[in-house]
Design a protein around this nucleic acid. Structure first.
Lengths: 209, 209
DNA sequence: TTCCAAACCCCATATTTATGTGATTGATGT
DNA sequence: ACATCAATCACATAAATATGGGGTTTGGAA
């Protein structure tokens, strides 16, 4: 028996899912709410195995809810539901510890299957999402060097990466252009480069930002 | 009735799967081969719904086969089979248009389920693979714009990204520095930027290289 | 206390980049 | 035949960047 907790603001869909889950062997809906405002207490009290979490909800949205849950519970499986398969929320969700990400248009039978999947350690995703995810990892070298840049050097480099000129950086940081030069010279030494674009490239490649 | 085409060089496993599929309602094995040398013709003639493709095969391997099929058929679902769950081939497979990636040790019942999954638009993966994929998922998003750069413009931009100056690029491509300038000017227009480092940043961020 | 690094500033100069306005050739498409 | 565009080259000028030298002040570590 898989204990399920549901967050979904659309009451019609919420009722629909409740009926589906109630009427299916092996699934037990232990709670269904329209928002995440009391998510911490609810998860703790109801102790579900799997949480179905809608992303687009009023007040505390699904991703917020996810983050709150993960602060105190790394065990419960969380399946994010959405109508869109936009990059940003997939990314945010997975990064924040979601176990899977599925579209609401998923047919009921499929949904039940996904719940099973996620409960037994799988990570259900639609194929477009899986593909996106894989593209992203192509250049995966998660190095943690920060080249021991100082805070200010980091500020300056950040702005360089965003395409600002020395003059603009000076303006934005309220320092003189010569100071900008000094910082940049130091940055180049630390990154072992000798041009702006090399520095930018290195910052991006090593995921400094 | 799902029409299945199988590529698997191990004849024992091939026979085994053939028997399994033949003996199960709803599945029909329309062909089984030990290599991909005639994959194009076979796929066209046999018109399968789902292809089970072993990755490690002599001559034309599974990933090659996959690419060949995808050149003329984006519709048929392709499920990659392998004994290893190594990153590189998962990545290559999905990038080349595979719909799922599963391990050979998958029990028969599960395999049939996966075939169903993939046929109805899912992206089955073994949980270990899905988990890996999610771990790799570290940052940002992918886009597929190539900004319609010409070949030469791409060459030049590539070298810029790698930190070369105009002079160096001229030397490496055996063209004059003024030609380099022309190309770069064009690149800036196409990328909507107006400095080297912005171009480099954009190239890297949009995963142009 | 002395030393050091970070953060700030100044000046000078050489090199690199950005931008504009040309032009010629060859391939492609209408 | 004509237009278009990629690819090549040229010349000129302004702006930005790289690099070399200086500095001061401040706060923390040795």
């Amino acid at each position: 028996m898989i204990r399920i907790l549901l967050y979904e603001d659309n009451s019609q869909l919420r009722e629909g899912l409740a009926i589906l889950l109630a009427g299916t062997d092996g699934f037990e809906l232990v709670g269904a709410f329209g928002n995440c405002t009391a998510v911490a207490k609810q998860v703790e009290e109801l102790n579900p195995d799997v949480i179905l979490m809608d992303i687009n909800m009023p007040q505390t949205d699904g991703i917020e809810g996810l983050k709150i849950i993960r602060q105190f519970n790394k065990e419960v499986k969380i399946l994010m539901l959405t109508v869109f398969d936009d990059n940003q929320s997939v990314f945010e969700s997975i990064k924040s510890g979601a176990n899977g990400y599925i579209l609401k248009k998923t047919p009921p039978a499929k949904l039940l299957e996904y719940i099973h999947d996620v409960q037994s350690g799988g990570a259900p995703m639609t194929s477009s999402i899986a593909t996106q995810v894989l593209k992203m990892f192509s250049s995966s070298h998660s190095s943690t060097d920060d080249f021991s840049l100082s805070d200010r050097e980091r500020d300056v480099l950040q702005l360089l990466v965003n395409g600002h000129s020395y003059k603009m950086i000076a303006g934005e940081l309220f320092i003189s252009i010569d100071t900008v030069r000094s910082h940049i010279k130091k940055v180049y030494e630390k990154l072992h480069v000798n041009s702006k674009s090399e520095a930018v490239a290195k910052a991006l490649k090593t995921r400094l930002f």
